[in-house]
Design a protein around this nucleic acid. Sequence first.
DNA 1: ATAGATGCAAATATTTTGCCGCCAG
DNA 2: CTGGCGGCAAAATATTTGCATCTAT
Lengths: 166, 166
Amino acid sequence: MSATPSHRVSTGERINDHEPAGRLQHELSSRGIRLTRQRRVVLQVMESAARHMDAGEILDRAQKIDADITRVTVYRTLDLLKGFGLIDELDLLHLRGHRHYYESHGPRDHIHVACIRCGRVREIESELYEDLKKQISKDCDIEISIARTEIGGVCGDCKAKAVSSD
Amino acid sequence: MSATPSHRVSTGERINDHEPAGRLQHELSSRGIRLTRQRRVVLQVMESAARHMDAGEILDRAQKIDADITRVTVYRTLDLLKGFGLIDELDLLHLRGHRHYYESHGPRDHIHVACIRCGRVREIESELYEDLKKQISKDCDIEISIARTEIGGVCGDCKAKAVSSD
DNA sequence: ATAGATGCAAATATTTTGCCGCCAG
DNA sequence: CTGGCGGCAAAATATTTGCATCTAT
C-alpha cells in the first residue's frame, strides 16, 4: 500500500458507517410512501448491510428478522428504492455469475475495486473521480445522476500467494 | 457541446472503427483455440457490431448469417471471449431491464455515458480516466485488468425537449 | 485420430405479473 | 375507509448442464 494514498480507502468487508440509521425509512416516508412492516425489514437489512448482497441474500436476512417476507416483496421493494435512487444496483464485474448486488450509499459516489482472484471488494472515494465526472458532464452536456465504476484485477495478497506457491 | 472537449467523444450509434477485421479470430487462434464455423460467425457479429448487443441480439444476427447456430453456442462463445478478456460484459446501468450487453473493444478503455431518458449511449475516452486508474492501481496495490465505468443522466436533447413541452 | 465443439433437451436461476385479500395512513 | 401493498402461484426470461454426436486440427 502506498504511504500517502490520494484516495480514501476502505478495506475488506463493507462497513456501513456513512448510513445514519433510519435514513431510508425517512426518505421514503418524506415522499409519502407507505411504510409497511415488510418494507421496514428490508430497509433495515439494506442499511445494516456489511457487504453487497444479491436479492437472495437480502431475502434470507429479511426472513431471519421476519419469516413472513417473500421473495416477491424483496424484488418490489428493491425496485421501489432503485426508482428513487436510494440504492444502487451493481454487477461487480460478473465475477461470481450474473447476480445483481444492491447497496445503499451515502451522498458521495465510490468506486468498487474487486480482486478477480479472491473476489474481495474494496470501496474507494477519489477527488480525481469527482473531477472526471465534472469533465464528462461538461463535455457530454449531461446532468449526471448515476455513476458507477468497477475495477478488476489481481490484488497484492493474491499476487504474493501466486509467487510463493510457484 | 463544449468547444474544446478534453475527451475524445463518439456520438450516437456505436461505430466499431477501432476493431481491425479479424482481430478476435486472430487472438483466439494465436492462443490455440479451435476456430469452428459457429465461432467464426459469432466473432464476425461481435466485430461488426454497430452497437451493444445482448445475447439474444447476438444470436439473431448470427442466425442471419448461418441459421444453424444455437443459443447455447452463443453463450459458450461469449464465455470463452470473456474468459480471455476479449469482450466486455456491461449492464448499461440496467436502464432497459436486467439484460447484459457485450462489446468487443480496442486496447483502450472507454466510458459509457447513457441518457436515462432516451437511452442513447455515447462512448468516451479520457486522459483523466487513465490517470484515475493509475492512481487506484497504486493506492490499492492492484494490477488492473478490467475497468468499467457507466454514467447516467439526462442528456442535453432530452432536457431541451422537457422544457419545450412544459 | 482425438480432444474439444456443437446441438438438443432439460434443469436452474432469476425476475415479473395477475389477482385477491389485507392493512397503513 | 380505501388505495396501495403483500402473498401466492404461475408465467416469462435468462443462463447453464449432461450427454451423444460431430469436426477442426
